[in-house]
């Protein structure tokens, strides 16, 4: 699957040159001093950050898929428009508000942070699971039932494989956003790279801020990229990509 042609190559080259130039400039201004002097701190916070993302992400995926599937079963299926609209509205609540609300009930600490991250990642996963299963051609479901598949077999062998592209896009979106949102868990004492970013902001120390922001950005890009690879592995080549 080589989608990017020459244009992609030029863009990549441009990005590398730009990043290099920015790095040189940052070095000249002394922004990178903190990074050089405290690699251990950054490493420790990065691991914390990753833990936040992976724990909340796993819970969100498990919960989101389950809830999404339940929303497409039985009588709830009839309220498909309503379900999708409601999920859309929930998605517009800002992440900071979710974290603030979680804190008022759970106090501060890592659990609060994870809870808020789970809640916030759930929505795109549920939404895409529901949308993905609903867009499966009803003729496929009819064919499945007509040939004697049980409802469970229709779900796992027909509906989910055909909804997989949209479901995985939802999970990828959720995880990537999660990386950014996890930076805010510093605000409720959850740790992570947000420590550096917010301290940097408070102290107007660009070096400190960059030491948090750069790894966060890289992590988001890296995860996005790995998920794209994963999609190519998981989704059947019979299903057309994209739109």
């Amino acid at each position: 699957m080589k989608r990017e042609g020459r244009g992609g190559n030029y863009l990549t080259m441009l990005a590398v040159i730009l990043a290099f130039a920015l790095g040189v400039e940052a070095q000249r201004r002394g922004y990178l001093n903190f990074v050089r002097q405290n690699p251990g701190d950054i490493y420790r916070l990065l691991i914390q950050h990753l833990q936040l993302v992976f724990i909340s992400g796993s819970i969100a995926v498990a919960l989101g898929l389950t809830i999404g599937i339940v929303l497409t079963r039985g009588f709830i299926r009839r309220y498909r428009e309503m379900t999708l609209n409601m999920l859309g509205v929930c998605q517009t609540v800002p992440s900071l508000a979710v974290i603030a609300i979680a804190m008022t009930y759970l106090g501060i600490g890592r659990k609060t942070a994870i809870f808020a991250l789970v809640v916030y990642s759930l929505l795109p996963i549920i939404r895409n699971t529901v949308a993905g299963i609903f867009q499966v051609d009803p003729a496929l479901v009819d064919a499945g039932h007509g040939m004697g598949m049980t409802s469970r077999q229709v779900l796992f062998k027909v509906e989910i494989p055909n909804a997989m592209y949209i479901i995985l896009t939802g999970i990828r979106t959720a995880i990537v956003i999660n990386v950014g949102t996890a930076a805010m868990s510093f605000l409720v004492g959850g740790g992570g790279l947000g420590d550096l970013i917010f301290s940097g902001l408070a102290m107007v120390d660009a070096g400190l801020m960059l030491a948090g922001a750069l790894p966060t950005a890289c992590l988001a890009i890296l995860l996005n990229w790995s998920f794209e690879r994963l999609e190519n592995l998981i989704i059947s080549p019979g299903i057309p990509r994209g739109e």
Partner: peptide, 13 residues
């Protein structure tokens, strides 16, 4: 069971 829309599963060979 065969239907007009055929209903072949796109993810399967």
């Amino acid at each position: 069971y065969a239907i007009q829309q055929v209903g072949l599963f796109p993810h399967m060979s």
